[in-house]
Simulated assay, not measured.
Amino acid sequence: MTQTHPTALIADDEAPMRDQLRARLHEAWPELRIVAEAANGVEAVALAREHAPDIAFLDIRMPGMGGIDAARQIYAQCHIVFATAYDQYAVEAFEHGAIDYLLKPVTLARLDTTVARLRRQLDRAPQDIGAQLARLAQLGEQLAGQNQAAARPAWLRWIQAQSGNSLRMVSTREVLFFQSDDKYTRVQTATAQHLIRKTLKELEEELDPDEFWRIHRSTLVRVDAILEVRRDLRGRQMLRLHGYPDELEVSRNHGALFQQM
């Protein structure tokens, strides 16, 4: 027999999202009682154990413990519905599985589908969704890695250097250092020197800071081109580079780069 007043838990770190889902559920399923609300996965697990709800609506992304990890601890005792702003989760992990999902912001039409499904399931014991949760966690890690990679800036990899009537493409992996004066910036490789009109400040913003360090107000050097650092008789830090005969001075303002000296 279908329960007259089923109960539910809502977990979302954003209060407006909790309010919206609560209001939508009241429209779509007036008999459903919301017995607890949580702002993170830890609270959700504790409240689920305290109130034993029939259903848990869990946001996937919450600070501390997210919805997936919370579901791993409570899925045997209640039916799980995930809320997510990420279509990738829904498409790849939910469509043919035992877990239902809602895309945020939640629409009443989509919630009606979820409510109909939950009504059919309430008289049954919660399904063993451990394997699907493991797949979902793996998908989340992959998605996080993709998002992180997409957020990385595209660092400058090629320098366009004019040589007479021709244009030379110089890979930043070839560059030993950049050195500027008032009008031009010198691009020094192990075999050649080029002049470009791009300023050192512009280059510093476009180059990978893990690959190129500013050692002087007029010099950027490729880190893995550094052979050694020494102090001269005047106490200045001087760099020797692979494939280049002259030394480069490190200014006092940038001496902290080589603190052990």
Rank of each mutant, 00 (worst) to 15 (best):
G66N: 03
G66S: 05
G66R: 01
G66P: 10
G66W: 10
G67K: 08
G67E: 03
I68K: 12
I68Q: 07
I68E: 02
I68V: 11
D69N: 04
D69Y: 01
D69I: 00
D69S: 06
D69T: 01
D69V: 01
A70P: 14
A70R: 11
A70Q: 09
A70C: 13
A70S: 12
A70W: 11
A71E: 01
A71P: 08
R72D: 00
R72I: 01
R72G: 03
R72T: 02
Q73L: 14
Q73I: 04
Q73Y: 08
Q73D: 00
I74K: 02
I74T: 03
I74R: 00
I74F: 02
Y75S: 05
Y75C: 03
Y75R: 04
Y75G: 01
A76D: 04
A76C: 05
A76R: 15
A76Y: 07
A76N: 06
Q77C: 02
C78A: 09
C78H: 10
I80P: 07
I80R: 00
I80H: 02
I80Y: 03
V81H: 02
V81Y: 08
V81Q: 11
V81E: 13
V81W: 07
V81T: 08
F82G: 06
F82V: 02
F82W: 08
F82C: 08
F82K: 12
A83W: 07
A83L: 14
A83C: 15
A83T: 15
T84N: 12
T84M: 12
T84C: 12
T84E: 03
T84Q: 12
A85H: 04
A85Q: 03
A85P: 08
A85V: 07
Y86V: 11
Y86H: 14
Y86R: 09
D87Y: 12
D87H: 15
D87E: 15
D87S: 14
Q88Y: 11
Q88R: 13
Y89V: 09
Y89W: 05
Y89A: 12
Y89H: 15
Y89E: 03
A90M: 07
A90T: 07
A90Q: 05
A90L: 06
A90Y: 04
V91P: 10
V91A: 13
V91G: 09
V91C: 09
V91L: 15
V91T: 13
E92I: 06
E92V: 10
A93E: 01
A93W: 02
A93D: 00
F94P: 15
F94E: 11
F94T: 10
F94K: 12
E95V: 12
H96W: 08
H96N: 13
H96Y: 14
H96V: 14
H96Q: 14
H96C: 11
G97V: 10
G97D: 14
G97C: 13
G97S: 15
A98S: 10
A98V: 07
A98F: 00
A98G: 08
A98M: 06
I99A: 13
I99R: 06
I99T: 06
I99K: 02
D100K: 06
D100N: 05
D100F: 00
D100P: 00
Y101M: 11
Y101T: 00
Y101G: 13
Y101S: 11
Y101A: 12
Y101K: 13
Y101F: 15
L102D: 11
L102N: 03
L102S: 10
L102T: 02
L102M: 08
L102H: 08
L102K: 04
